[in-house]
């Protein structure tokens, strides 16, 4: 009797252990941590360096006279940037057409534009690289001189 009872108990124990599950299986874990993607920044600004400060406020310019502003175009971000410049004549188109504008990189003595003020531009503001677009590295600056002249042969009608 005792022997039969003992065998029955042993059998029940074995059955219950196998039903519990996989907690006794082998496993190993490894990790890949700190996977990171970070974006850079793009921040354009300008500051007056010397000469007539921008914005220009010149009254009574006479034929033969010249005013010049020297500015730095600053890249305050981390990414290299590319810039272009355009001119919008708000009023006085006739005078804007007569005034001459010379844009140049005064650090390297490179002419960027020399023609009428109304058409003054650098590069092309459309997305992408175009001829004339200027490159400024992150944290760096580009030096630009804007020289405006009223030609000496300008007549009294102006």
């Amino acid at each position: 009797m005792k022997k039969i009872l003992g065998l029955t108990i042993a059998f029940l124990l074995i059955v219950s252990l196998s039903v519990i599950g996989a907690w006794a299986y082998f496993l190993d874990t490894e990790t890949s941590t700190g996977n990171t993607l970070a974006a850079g920044t793009l921040d354009l600004s300008w500051t007056n360096e010397s000469g007539v400060p921008l914005p220009f406020n010149v009254s009574s310019i006479a034929p033969g006279e010249t005013v010049e502003a020297r500015v730095s175009i600053n890249n305050n971000g981390t990414l290299q940037l590319r810039y272009a410049m355009t001119t919008d004549v708000v009023s006085g188109t006739t005078l804007a057409n007569q005034l001459q504008c010379r844009l140049y990189d005064y650090e390297n003595s490179i002419d960027l534009y020399n023609g009428s003020l109304s058409g003054a531009h650098i590069g092309d503001p459309a997305q992408g690289q175009q001829a004339g677009d200027r490159i400024v590295a992150g944290g760096s600056e580009d030096y630009l001189a804007i020289r405006i002249t009223l030609p000496a042969d300008t007549g009294n009608e102006y």
């Binding site: 496993l27 490894e30 990171t36 974006a39």
Partner: peptide, 15 residues
Amino acid sequence: QGDSVSFDITFTLEQ
């Protein structure tokens, strides 16, 4: 601009 994102991955080999 200037933002970052990070994450972890855990690999487990089971019997």
